[in-house]
Amino acid sequence: MLKTILAARETLLLVAVLLLLLLVSSRFPAFIEIDNLVKVLTDTSPLIILALGQMLVIVTRCIDLSVAANLALTGMVVAMLNTAAPELPIVFTLLIAVSLGAVLGAINGLLVWRLAIPSIVVTLGTMTIFRGTIFLISDGQWINAHEMSEHFSQFPRGSVAGMPVLAWIAVLVTITAWIFIARTPTGRAFFAVGSNPHASVYTGIDVGRTQCIAFIISGALAGLTGYLWVARYAVAYVDIASGFELEVVAACVIGGIAIAGGQGSVVGVLLGAIFLGVVKNALPVVNISPFWQLAISGAAILIAVAFNSRSSQSRGRLILKEAEQST
C-alpha cells in the first residue's frame, strides 16, 4: 500500500520532469536533443552527488548544512596542491579530495555523536569555519585556470562513450548509493535510526555512530564534488558554491525525503535533483528571468512537502478506519 504511494510520488516527479521538458521543447526543440540533455545532466551532476550524501544524513534525522563549504575548502586545497605539485596523478587528487571531505564530515559526525549537539547547529558552525579556513589558507587569493595543470582541469570534462566523466561519476555514485542502501546492513541502519531511534537502540544499532557514518559519507561526497567543481569551472576561491547547500536540501525534499527522517529513496533524490537541474537550464533558454527559477524551485519545495504530509495523513486515516471496523 505504502509502496504504491511511494512509487506514485516518484512517478509523479518523473511526470513533472517530462512535462517540463515537453513544455520547453515546444518552444525550443533543440533542448531535448541528446547532446543537450547530456549537458543538463552534467551540469546537474554536482547537485546529484551532494544530494545523495545529504539524503543519508536527513534519513538519520540530521541535516548537513556544511556540504557547500566542505566542497569549497576541499576544492581550494586540491587546487593549491595542484599548483604546488602539477604532476600529481589524478588518482591521488581524487583520493585526497575524498579523504579530506570525509575528515571534515567526520568532524560534524563526531560533534553530533559524542557531544550530542543538534546537527543543524554543528553544521552551521562548521560551515562558517570551513569558509573561514579557505580564506586563511588562500589569503583570499583566487586560483585561476592558467595556474592549474592540464590534466587536473580536463579530467571531469573528458568524454567516455559520449558523456563527460563528471556525469559518469554522478551515475556511478547513484548506483553505489542505491546498492548501499538496499543491500548493506549499514544502509538499513540509516533508515532504522531515522524511523525509530528508540527501537534501533534496542535492536543493537548505535544511533550516534550511524549518524556519524552518514556525515562521513556526506562529507566524502562533498570532497569529491569539491575537486570536480574546481576543475570543471577551472577556478577556486572562497565563495564558490556559496549557498549551494540549500539547493542540495531542496533536491532532497522535492525528491520525497522526509525531513523528519526514516523515509526516502535514491530514485526520488535523483529525480528531485534532475528536476531542479532542468528548471535551471530550461528557463534561460525560453527567456524567463533567473528570478523565476528561484520562485519555481521554491514552489516545487512547498508542493513536495505538502504532498509528503498529505500522503502520511491519509495513512493515518486508514489506520483509524481499521480501528473503527474492529470495534
Partner: peptide, 18 residues
C-alpha cells in the same frame, strides 16, 4: 510503538534487523 517495531519499514526488514 516507541521501542519495538520500526513501523515505517517493511516486516522483513524489521525481523532481520538484528
Amino acid at each position: 510503538g516507541k521501542q519495538g517495531a520500526i513501523t515505517t519499514l517493511p516486516i522483513f526488514q524489521n525481523v532481520s534487523l538484528p
